[in-house]
Design a protein around this nucleic acid. Structure first.
Lengths: 206, 206
DNA sequence: TGACAACATGGTCAAACAACCATATTTTAG
DNA sequence: CTAAAATATGGTTGTTTGACCATGTTGTCA
């Protein structure tokens, strides 16, 4: 995008800040903030429109960011997702960046998705470690062989669920602890399948 | 919060929607959308203020959401994080929900944080699987023993980095493949430490 | 030196606007 | 049944606002 002068940049940043807080500023408000005449702002805003940073929705307080500029901002906001990393280039060089993603976008979440903090090592061999958060999608049943969250003896456990003829097998994944599969009757009152594990997040790796 | 009538709810939702798109609606715009007189809106908005959903910043298009309501919205927006799950309760019952977190908040990210898609199984024993995204914080050096991203032979690799006297050891974590540590000279031109792995995200668990 | 872009002031004006009044109908709760 | 709350209309008023005009200054570039 066409470069901005310092003043224009300042004004634009102020506008973005205001929009972030959901109140598009009036020209007079901007003028007040920078101790300018309303008209100085009118002009500067005109420049910003001409350069394609702002769009006018019409009406009072009608300033909007242009799509192009919103996109440019997104690159600062979302996390850059790196594809193949080329040697020599600075790591965050454009050719390395595949896209910019918000973490929200990684999981296309619906209303009934939630996080559950995992305690225990029973699923380590599946890459679900103690302290991880599993992303769970609420569901009354889980496909056989999938990893699910089961409410069992007042405790939510994450296990691989295998549906058999008359029972359900809850298979841990911990080589060291041995694979002590637990079997429960189907339709047991004290057991409830809570959901299906669709993701896993680990923070604070040291 | 005090419950809303259907009409009030409708109006509020419309306002929220407008605010999301960064243009607080004027009363007339709302009125137009619902085919009402400006004054009907004035009254309904008054109720919403009285009930604590809206706040008035004064001036034209001065409507804002109250903090209380923003908080309530956050519960719909962020993912609920479940603590100890009580049996009997519906899984998303209030007593189960510890807090509502946006995924953004899980990593307190700075500008130089990015995602890198992992290919390969060399870190499976650390719970970093093929296809996972690692959250990387840019850094020229990595503490000994930490997991880092190293640019090596035109390829970004995730390995445990152990700094020794005259060399750096890159230790994979894959029992099956054997732990074939790779040693590189310190200050080797062809090697660059790119950053430190601070998190790991797995999507699409089947 | 002269042209031009950027930046600035003060002033005017019509449209958009929130606030408020009087009033009427419908819905809800006791 | 009745009173209060909620929902609605139309009209008035004073303020806020964007747009625009005339004009002046400063810095840059040819």
């Amino acid at each position: 995008m066409e470069p901005l002068t310092e003043k224009q940049q300042q004004i634009l940043e102020f506008i973005v800040e205001c929009l972030r807080e959901n109140h598009p500023p009036s020209q007079r408000e901007i003028a007040g903030h920078f101790k300018l005449a309303q008209n100085a702002v009118y002009q500067l805003v005109s420049y910003l429109k001409k350069k394609g940073y702002l769009v006018d929705a019409g009406g009072h307080r009608g300033l909007r960011l242009s799509e192009a500029y919103v996109e440019e901002l997104a690159e600062t906001e979302g996390m850059p997702l790196l594809g193949r990393v080329a040697a020599g280039e600075p790591i965050l060089a454009e050719e390395n960046v595949e896209s910019y993603v918000t973490l929200e976008a990684l999981f296309n979440r619906s209303k009934d998705t939630f996080l559950l903090k995992v305690s225990g090592d029973s699923m380590v061999d599946e890459g679900i470690l103690d302290g991880d958060y599993v992303v769970v999608k609420s569901a009354a049943r889980v496909g056989s062989g999938q990893i699910g969250v089961v409410l069992l003896d007042d405790e939510a456990t994450v296990k691989r669920v295998v549906v058999q003829k008359h029972r359900i097998a809850l298979k841990p994944a911990n080589r060291k602890a041995g694979y002590k599969t637990r079997y429960i009757k189907r339709f047991d009152k004290d057991v409830r399948i809570v959901g299906k594990v669709i993701g896993c997040i680990r923070t604070d790796i040291r």
